[in-house]
Amino acid sequence: MKMISPSNVAVDIGQTLKPHEYIGMVRREVLDAHLRDRASAAGATVINGLFTKMDKPLDKYAPYVIHYNEYDGRPGSSGKKVTMEVDAVIGADGANSRVAKSIDAGDYEYAIAFQERIKIPDDKMKYYENLAEMYVGDDVSPDFYGWVFPKCDHVAVGTGTVTHKPDIKKFQLATRLRARDKILGGKIIRVEAHPIPEHPRPRRLANRVALVGDAAGYVTKCSGEGIYFAAKSGRMCAEAIVEGSENGTRMVEEADLRKYLEKWDKTYWPTYKVLDILQKVFYRSNPAREAFVEMCADEYVQKMTFDSYLYKKVAPGNPLEDLKLAVNTIGSLVRANALRNEMAKI
């Protein structure tokens, strides 16, 4: 990965990666279809439908009644209204989750992410074949970052923001301008926008209904990563249901599903907290972002960053190196503040 500061200072990140370690890039239209096909092959019944509402059980062991529109895949089809009785519900229906609304899960602050898939000339695509770029600066986002990510035979160019959503297209233009020489001659083949949760919902469980992924608000600050945490939370929740139902021989209860939440929070809360602090400290101004990129050139910072990122846990550090890092961080922030004060006088 290449980190690029507001003044276009570029730092290559990845020198500490082992041969088997890498940042995976996916195309959701490919990944999602693969996951559906794999679930079907494992015995799941796949339904092309849209969840509309659910009727809550009248007593402890009664089923939930799911209402949805089932589609046959033909263009213009309005769908057939269908109901289904189920023992438990896992809401994995994204940031605008209807399942979350049905259990009054509460709202969360969210970022809007906007990206353009761009088909660039083959010689320019060669540059991005094994490289992701991350741009920081007030021009591309006041509180997030801009990116150019490889997507097999094209790139995704995008940005995001929480605080200035109406200006997202202005930030997108700035991101394209920052990368303009490297994507020159490109043709936009798809435009995408999506809300990104900024923190977990106030309520993620109600009786036998649990939320996972974006529906639960499981996206990390600073990096905006959500795919891994969506898949992992879905798996952990399903495992809790299998264990609690004793492989389908007893009805699961809220206490069974709560074990998933307890395990999730214990495993991942430190990661979310650290990234939240990093975003608040280093994404607040251009001088702070310059300091952030400067720090990323340090080999120890890169090792700690990738060990934490790749294995989704806050990596234990070396006390002496941590002390050096703290001193260097303070020094970088002092220089950043001095620069900001100088700029304010101009």
Rank of each mutant, 00 (worst) to 15 (best):
Asn69Cys: 10
Gly137Arg: 02
Ile120Gly: 00
His67Lys: 11
Pro319Arg: 12
Tyr311Lys: 05
Ile241Ala: 11
Pro197Gly: 10
Lys324Met: 12
Lys312His: 14
Ala113Lys: 01
Ala44Tyr: 05
Lys280Thr: 06
Cys152Gly: 07
Cys296Lys: 05
Gly24Val: 11
Lys232Phe: 06
Gly331Cys: 04
Gly43Lys: 06
Tyr127Gln: 03
Thr16Lys: 02
Met295Phe: 04
Lys169Ile: 10
Gly94Asp: 00
Tyr300Glu: 00
Tyr145Ser: 09
Ala113Trp: 03
Thr161Glu: 07
Ala100Glu: 00
Met134Leu: 14
Leu177Thr: 11
Ala39Asn: 10
Leu278Glu: 12
Leu278Pro: 05
Pro316Trp: 01
Val30Cys: 09
Pro142Tyr: 07
Gly185Arg: 02
Asp123Ala: 06
Val274Cys: 05
Ala216Ser: 00
Ser7His: 13
Val314Ile: 11
Gly94Ala: 00
Phe292Ser: 06
Leu310Lys: 01
Pro6Ala: 08
Ser40Asn: 12
Pro75Ala: 01
Gly244Gln: 04
His154Glu: 13
Val327Arg: 09
Ala156Phe: 08
Ile47Thr: 14
Asp87Tyr: 05
Glu290Asp: 12
Lys263Met: 10
Ala33Cys: 06
Lys60Thr: 08
Val219Leu: 05
Tyr218Ser: 01
Leu35His: 09
Leu333Tyr: 06
Asp138Glu: 13
Thr267Pro: 00
Met304Ser: 03
Ala156Trp: 04
Asp107Thr: 05
Gln15Glu: 14
His164Ala: 13
Val11Thr: 13
Met125Ile: 05
Tyr110Phe: 07
Phe149His: 12
Leu17Asp: 00
Leu278Lys: 13
Leu35Lys: 10
Ala238Arg: 01
Pro270Lys: 09
Lys80Met: 14
Thr45Arg: 14
Met54Thr: 08
Glu70Lys: 15
Pro75Val: 06
Asp12Val: 15
Glu133Thr: 03
Asp265Cys: 12
